[in-house]
Amino acid sequence: MLDILAITSPIFLIIAIGYIAVYRNIVAQTVARGMGAFVINFALPCLLLRTVIAHDINKVFDTNYLAAYGSGSLIVFALGYFFARLIAKKSQQNAALQGMGMSMSNSGFIGYPIVLQLLGPTAGIALALCFIIENLVITPLTLILGDSAEAEGTSRWQILRKTFTRLARNPIIVAIVIGMSISISGITLPGPIFSVIDMLASASGPVALFVIGGGLVGLKLRGLRFDMARIVFGKLVLHPLIIFLLLGLVPDLDPVMKIAAVGYACAPMLSVYPIYCQRYGHEAMGAASLMAATSLSFITISTALWLLDSTAVFGPLP
C-alpha cells in the first residue's frame, strides 16, 4: 500500500499546492484558468501527438481497448441518465449531465499523471484511446441530448452537425488525427519541431494538476446532496467497476493496458464539468460534484490500485 501511496500522493500534493496558491492569492484564479487553457490547447495536444507518432498505429488504435472502455463508459452513462430521468424525475438536460459526470474521467489532468508513474509510456497510448471515447462518444452524446431538449424547431441533423463541427476544431481531436496521419505516412518530423512538441508535452502533467487545485477554490458543497452523491458514486465506484468487469471479457488485451483502463476510469470527472453544467443551468450541481469527487478520489484511486497490485488480477504492476 505504501508503494501505491508513493505514486498517488505526489499527484494530490500538487493539487493541494495549486489550491493553496490560488486560495492565498499567490496566483490569481484567472491566471490559473489561463494555465488550464495552455494545457488544453497546447500541452495535452502535444502529448497526444508525441505519443501517437512514436508508436505503431496498430498499437495505438487498439480496438479491444476501445470496445471495453467505450462500452463500459456508455453503460455507466445510460445508468446515470435513465436513473435520473425515470427514477429521480429529472429533466433530460439534468439527466444527460449526470450521465456525463459518472462516465467521463479527467483523463488528461489527473488520470495521466497517475498512470504515467505507474506504467510509463503506455499511459500515453491509453490516454489517446480514452480521449477518443470521451471526445467522440460521451461529449457528443451529452450535447445532443442536452441541446435537443431545448432546440424547438431545430432538426436533429442540425444539432448533430453543430456538435461535430465544434468537435472537429477541438485541439485534442486535431492532434490525434495529425499524429495518426504522420504515423501512417512514415514521415519523420525535423528535430527542432519534435523538440518543441516534446517540451510542451512534458509540461502537461504538473501544470494540469496545479490548475485542478486552483479551480477548486470557491466551489461550495451546498444543497443537491442526493444528485451529488449519485454522480460521485457513479464516477468513483461504478465506472471503474464496470470497466474492470468488461476487461475480464477481453482476453486478447495487454494486461498493462487493462491496468491503464482501470486507472483512467478511477479518475474523477473532467475539470470543466461545471462549465458543461452551466450551459444548461446546473452549474451548482456540477461544481459540488467536481469538488467532492476530486477530494475523495485520493482514497478511491489509491484503494483501486492497491487492490490491483495485491490481487494481481491482471498480473503484477510494473
Score class of each variant (00 low, 15 high):
1 M>I: 03
4 I>A: 00
6 A>N: 03
7 I>K: 08
7 I>C: 02
10 P>N: 05
16 A>W: 09
17 I>Y: 04
18 G>S: 05
19 Y>I: 02
23 Y>V: 06
25 N>T: 10
26 I>G: 04
26 I>V: 10
27 V>H: 01
29 Q>P: 12
30 T>I: 10
32 A>K: 00
35 M>G: 10
38 F>I: 08
41 N>R: 07
45 P>D: 06
47 L>Q: 09
49 L>P: 04
50 R>F: 06
52 V>E: 06
55 H>W: 08
56 D>C: 12
56 D>P: 06
59 K>C: 11
60 V>C: 05
61 F>S: 10
64 N>E: 04
65 Y>M: 15
66 L>V: 15
67 A>P: 03
69 Y>H: 11
70 G>K: 02
72 G>F: 04
73 S>N: 03
74 L>D: 01
74 L>I: 12
76 V>A: 01
76 V>G: 00
78 A>P: 04
78 A>I: 05
86 L>Y: 15
89 K>A: 01
90 K>I: 03
91 S>C: 08
93 Q>I: 06
97 L>P: 14
97 L>T: 14
97 L>F: 11
101 G>C: 07
103 S>K: 14
110 I>D: 09
111 G>L: 13
112 Y>R: 13
114 I>E: 14
116 L>Q: 10
117 Q>L: 14
118 L>Y: 12
118 L>N: 15
123 A>Q: 15
123 A>R: 14
126 A>T: 15
127 L>T: 12
133 I>P: 12
137 V>C: 12
137 V>K: 10
138 I>K: 09
141 L>H: 06
148 S>Q: 12
149 A>C: 02
150 E>A: 12
153 G>P: 10
155 S>I: 14
155 S>D: 07
159 I>P: 13
160 L>I: 14
161 R>D: 14
165 T>G: 15
165 T>Q: 08
166 R>E: 14
166 R>A: 15
171 P>Q: 13
174 V>C: 10
174 V>W: 00
175 A>I: 13
177 V>A: 15
179 G>Y: 05
179 G>F: 08
179 G>V: 11
185 S>H: 06
186 G>T: 08
199 M>N: 11
199 M>R: 12
202 S>Q: 11
210 F>N: 13
217 V>P: 08
219 L>M: 12
226 F>W: 14
227 D>C: 08
228 M>C: 15
228 M>R: 13
233 F>H: 13
235 K>H: 10
236 L>D: 05
236 L>P: 03
242 I>M: 06
245 L>S: 01
248 G>T: 07
253 L>E: 03
254 D>Q: 07
260 A>H: 02
260 A>D: 03
262 V>N: 01
264 Y>C: 11
264 Y>K: 06
266 C>I: 09
270 L>W: 10
271 S>A: 05
272 V>K: 07
275 I>L: 04
275 I>F: 00
276 Y>T: 02
282 H>E: 01
284 A>D: 09
287 A>P: 02
287 A>L: 00
292 A>I: 00
293 A>L: 10
294 T>H: 02
295 S>H: 10
296 L>S: 08
300 T>K: 00
300 T>V: 04
301 I>H: 06
302 S>Q: 12
304 A>D: 07
306 W>H: 04
307 L>M: 04
312 A>F: 07
313 V>L: 11
316 P>A: 09
317 L>F: 02
318 P>L: 06
